[in-house]
Design a protein around this nucleic acid. Structure first.
Lengths: 126, 126
DNA sequence: ATTATTAATGCAACTAAGTTGCAAATATAA
DNA sequence: TTATATTTGCAACTTAGTTGCATTAATAAT
């Protein structure tokens, strides 16, 4: 079940994603908002926003959860399956607007695919 | 730095990978071996075996670390970059012998790519 | 506008994965 | 057989994430 009431917590969290491009890790959100929001609240609201198709989540480098805004997703159709890119220098993560073809695999049914590409981002290249 | 001495711990852990096909999660190894080995030892030995190119590691569904035997890797050349498949029913994880083409991305340097495919495995399909 | 209802929040306590420092044990070299 | 240095176990710790419950605050009903 997703978001039902428009609360301060929801507004604060959504604001983070509206004022920043790219993905944000849960640990970063906790550090940024811990004076305003309890960590349980942060986890619960993010979970609901994902349910609603507003955010999508994925695992970054150390198994830490990241969230980013969805484009064209809904509750039962998370359709922007795209790779994520994590910079090994600055740690920043972005969604990549790239298609990667995952071949069919004999005798297996594919539900979803998570692709994490690691390397150096634009700003850290030089 | 990798393995230097041939200890009981190393033998016990390697045995797990020799008698089982597929990948094994750290949590499973801890459950299986906790009467023989301390968890610190398990983490440390796995780490060294990865350094030596005997095992490779990756993150499964919930950010839990999995290990599997390498084929043709060495300390400074982990060359079997392949996708991993995790069954959403039984939780089993296998290495897939499949090539997935990751396109070059403008203004970024790609170091590595982790691909986790989720779905139903052979045995859980029916 | 006031009250009633129920979702959302804060809090504290908890679980589980993973790490670390240090003393004791055990491979290997001398 | 002894010396040395790696490896191990242990206990204590860190951090991500979860849960139950009482309180707070949106929303609906009056």
């Amino acid at each position: 079940m997703g978001i039902i009431r428009k609360t301060q917590s929801v507004a604060l969290l959504l604001d983070e994603f509206n004022t920043n491009s790219g993905a944000i890790s849960v640990t970063t959100l906790n550090k940024r908002l811990n004076s305003n929001l309890n960590k349980s609240t942060i986890y619960r609201v993010l979970d609901k926003l994902e349910d609603d198709g507003v955010l999508h989540s994925f695992l970054g480098d150390n198994g830490i959860k990241w969230y980013a805004k969805c484009e064209g997703c809904s509750h039962d159709n998370h359709k922007d399956i795209h790779p994520h890119f994590q910079c090994v220098v600055c740690g920043k993560v972005d969604c990549l607007n790239v298609d990667i073809v995952v071949p069919k695999i004999p005798n297996r049914e594919i539900n979803s695919t998570e692709i994490l590409i690691k390397g150096k981002c634009e700003t850290c290249l030089n």
